[in-house]
Structure formats: C-alpha cells, structure tokens
Design a protein around this nucleic acid. Structure first.
Lengths: 227, 227
DNA sequence: GTGTCCATTTCGAGG
DNA sequence: CCTCGAAGTGGACAC
C-alpha cells in the first residue's frame, strides 16, 4: 500500500462528473491498483476514488511547472479519475500482506437462523415448514405453520422499516395465488420496528413481532422441553 | 490527520460484533476523532471504523508485553472499538486543513431539474405543476398535468429498479385518496430501467420512460419555441 | 430530532 | 456473469 500526502486537484468523469479544488489531501493506493482520496474530516468515505481493477498512468511535469505530476486512473469502463499533484509532502509504501479478514456476528442471517430454530418465540403455536422458501420473486425468510394448519410467512429484518413490509406484502400477494397457500398470513419480525413500518403492516393485516437477539441466543436447545 | 501503520487486532461491539485477527494494517485518525482501519485490498470501505463524534482512550503497555498499546474508542451510544496494537511501523501526523469540498454534476437531482424544465420530453402533452410535491409519506419528484387536465405523477431515478416502482405506487395510492387527484397517473422515468422494474410498472399501470441525460442537458431554452 | 430518500453506494449470496 | 437484498450503510434535506 502506498500513502501520499499531497496538494492536489481531482476530477472524476464517469457515472457522474465531480471536481475537487486544489488542497492538501491523503491519497491511498492499494496493491490492487485502486485509488482513494481522503480529506481530514467526514466519515470513512473518500472524497473521490476508483475501484479495482484499474490502471494508473503517471505523467511527470517540468520542475518549473505548477504541477509536479498528473495521474490518470482509468478502469475497464469509461470512468476516469485525474489527479493533478502540485506538491508531495509525504510518499510512503508499506507491505501489509493479505488481511485475514473480518468475522461478523449478529446480522440478519444469524437472526433468521435463531428464529428458524425457535419459531415459537414469534407465536407459540408455530412450527417451521421451510427456511428460505422460494417464490418466483425471491425467498421468503421463514415459512411456518400453525397448529390449525394455517400457513404463516415470516419476513425477518434487523431493523424493521417500510421496505421490509413492502417486501413481505409482495410475497404474500404472490403466495396467495397458490391454492395451497391461499390464506397464508404474514408476520414481520425485527429487533426494532419503526412506527411507520408498524402502521403500514397493520394496514396490510400483517402482524409485527419484535425479537430480542441476545435473549434468543440465550435459549439453549434443552430449554425447549419447557414447552 | 494521523496515519499509523501497525500490527493490530481489532474488536467492534455495537450494532453487531466483529473481530479482526492480528495483522498489519493502516489506521487513520481524523482530526474530528473518527478512526478507520484499512487493509491493502478491497474497495474504499474500511474493515472497521468509528465515526465522529467519539473519544479515544489510549493505554500504554509494558515494553515486555506482547501489546504496545490498546486503544478504546467509544461514541455516545454503546458502540466500542478496541484496537490492540502489537507493533507500530509508522506513525505520522499531518495538517491537511479544511477541505474545500466536492462539486458534483449528473446526480438524480440534476436529472429531476432538467425534467422539470422539459416535461414534454417525458410526454409531449405535459406541463409542470410542481417539483417535489409533498405527500404525507414523502415527496413526489414531479407533479405534471396533461392538456386534458389529467394529473401525472413522475418518479425520477438515475437507475430504475423495483424499489422506485414501489415508491411511486405508494405515492399514487395515497394521492388518489385526494378527490382532486383521484385519477392521477404515474410515469417512471430513469436513464436506465431494469426489466424487472419495467414488468412491475406495467403490472401497476405505470408508464416507463427512459431519458437521455446528455441530450436533455443539450436542450437550450431557445429550443422550446420549436413546440 | 425524526423521517425519507439518494448513493460513482459497497458487499455478499445465489442462480 | 448478472441480479437481488443487506449494510455498524453514510449523507442530505424537509418537516
């Protein structure tokens, strides 16, 4: 990885056009060729960038020139990033090796697994029919069945917002065209459900259930005998 | 801005849990206190980060210890980022000043402005009633009216996908409850419309129009006399 | 502050 | 390869 601190002006032309006036910034060049230009503020997102794969062409200018170097970064498409460097304050290259990678825990998939193992925590008369039940327009997170035989489709979200309700509505609409599932009900399950989503769900006849991730994770298989 | 190259192990606990094994990485500390940890690959997104506002507490360890320093970064919520540093290869601080900022051209807002100025390019009998017409659930990009008096709601996207059709559908459903707008029609306008979105729009009785940004931008005010 | 929507979103999974 | 959905999404803007 190469890290420059340089006074530069940047122009991007591609999916949109963008311009950065001359100022001192950090330029990061990764070993895959990707380039990102960071300022000393804002979030982690760079001001400008070019993702890999791309190629960098460097043009050196005369010492008398206002510009020391001009980089032209292009990718396979028609995107172009032009970095005009007036002055370089630092230029270091480091060998970081390959990163062993990030391990995550607590995302939607995990929540879905826990609910698939304990559908009673959604409603005590439910049992699992299938996880990732495939419809023509996408997979329903959980398909369950009540003791009465009634089918129930469950959409699982980490945070319950309007989009999730729309998604479940589409699934329900499609599933109900199948005679076997003509009366399928919907449950919208999330760790936190926003009021707007709750309102829309109610309007659509969909039940909302908030789930406690930590509590679910604490349920040991042995605890099932309590039912 | 402070830039470290350090062999470190990182743990994040907050909206999820995440762990990074010991490896050499770049640690960027911005003057607002935000921290991001980058590897030498992937896109611009860091492996882990903590956005401002946050505070950093540094604990120095014994020289004999396996760890040189342990940073604990916390924000106002309950998020915690723990950076355990075994070895520091580089540690530089630079004064970058405040960035003059990015100027963009070609995003959805511009497309919306151009279409507001030339609604005939969507359908030749349309004139603009209002841009950003506010409904209770969000703003409709363009509200237009045909020569017959018929109202037309337009949703503008850079790329037309299913979400955009859902969005316009929600607006239409709500607007039609208003007697004045009870027959409002919908137009889905984008530079590129994906087949699934086109199919869904057709099913909902919504017209699709693909628009050419460069061509629209080329229409001079004088050209209007051609109508 | 909350709510909604855009983004050069990035990222990953699945067909 | 594309398509779709999730993200610690982040960021802007209106209410």
């Amino acid at each position: 990885m190469r890290v420059l601190i340089a006074t530069c002006e940047v122009d991007y032309a591609g999916r949109l056009s963008a311009h950065l006036p001359m100022a001192k910034r950090l330029v990061m060049v990764k070993s895959d060729g990707s380039v990102s230009i960071h300022s000393d503020g804002g979030a982690y997102k760079p001001l400008n960038w070019m993702g890999a794969p791309c190629s960098i062409e460097v043009e050196n200018r005369d010492p008398d020139d206002d510009l020391a170097q001009v980089w032209t970064v292009t990718n396979r498409g028609s995107d172009t990033l032009r970095i005009a460097i007036a002055e370089v304050e630092a230029d270091q290259t480091y060998d970081l090796g390959v990163d062993p990678g990030l391990e995550k825990d607590g995302v939607e998939k995990h929540l879905q697994e826990l609910l698939a193992a304990h559908p009673q925590s959604l409603r005590d008369d439910l049992s699992l029919v299938q996880r990732e039940y495939y419809t023509a327009i996408g997979p329903v997170d959980l398909l369950c069945r009540a003791k009465t035989g009634q089918y129930v489709a469950v959409e699982v979200k980490r945070r319950g917002e309007i989009d999730g309700v729309e998604q479940l509505t589409r699934y329900l609409e499609l599933m109900r065209r199948d005679p076997l599932l003509s009366t399928v009900e919907g449950i919208f399950a999330a760790q936190l459900i926003k009021p707007q989503a709750r309102t829309l769900a109610k309007d659509r006849g969909i039940d909302c259930v908030t789930v406690d991730y930590d509590h679910l994770r604490g349920i040991e298989p042995d605890d099932d005998r309590l039912f």
